[in-house]
Amino acid sequence: MLEVVIISSIKVLVVISVVLFGCAYATWLERKVLGHMQHRIGPLYAGPHGLLQPIADAVKLIFKEEIIPDKVERATYALAPMISFIPAVLTFAVVPFGVDGSILGHEVKMVISDLNIGILFVFAITSLGVYGIVLAGWSSGSKYSLMGGIRSSAQMISYEISYGLSIIGVILIAGTLSLTELVTQQGSTSIWFFANWFILKQPLGFLLYVICAVAETNRLPFDLPEAESELVAGYMTEYSSMRFSMFFVSEYANMIAVACVGVTLFLGGWQGPFIDTMPWLAMVWFMAKVIFWMFCYIWLRATFPRFRYDQLMAFGWKVLLPVALFNTMATALAVTLGWL
């Protein structure tokens, strides 16, 4: 019992540290990649290639003065950043990140908790994240924040359905809800190491997942809750200092979470070539895939302009939802007939 508690605690500490470190350096990646895509240089002076910039930013945000406007609803105003931060980090509890092995004579599973309903856990937790944004908007007592919050809730309701349906195809084919089991099924020993990845059987589902994931994390082109050209900063307009940075970190943690789940569902998780001889490579493959996903995320931001509000709603309800329903039906039919 004690051994399990100690091993789990170490795993939790390691995963949280890696995720927070990843969040910090995701901001650096974003500024650097965006900079180069827009013919700028990005952060340069703090450390080589600006590598110390995230640390400098963190220190700056911690020491900034906290300003709380008079009109806020105190309790919810203080709670909102935490409500948006905690679900973002909780998601990582079920993501498998490597081959199970033994370290110093102890059997260690490379996942914090191997729930048999893992993917449902992910969706239950991520659906709670929206409350942080909505409550921040409502409790700030500012019209910009309120509008950001309302937009966020409407967007979340509209895209949550397609988001949920986009993964049904994978679940139908795999016949399991456990993320560990999903990764195992995508393994392949042939030279075509990606032969069993679900992206090949579910290309439409993958596309839907990517679109809805971008919408769920409020990133461009779906960042209407914080559209700076019309709403100043949307739901986080009235926040400053550490509370602001918690929103900031949770946005990046959400991006990484969505990337991890997407990689696990469609891109084979930690599967890759040579892992049977060198099991530690699994973690490298997983990291590489997640970083590539993050790069594409930033690429999207540099490429697309923001949607107009009515376009966003029409796209969600009139395009994504029918396509997602079609994909579900088609996959169900194919699985029943034994084609997949």
Binding site: I117, L120, F121, F123, A124, I125, S127, L128, V130, Y131, V134, G137, W138, L146, G149, I150, S153, A154, M156, I157, E160, G164
Partner: peptide, 22 residues
């Protein structure tokens, strides 16, 4: 447990909040 959270907390109550805020 997961379905309770997904359906109620994740969808229905977001809708409630949306209407209240609207």
């Amino acid at each position: 447990g997961a379905v309770l959270i997904i359906v109620y907390s994740g969808a229905i109550l977001v809708l409630f909040l949306f209407v209240i805020m609207l």
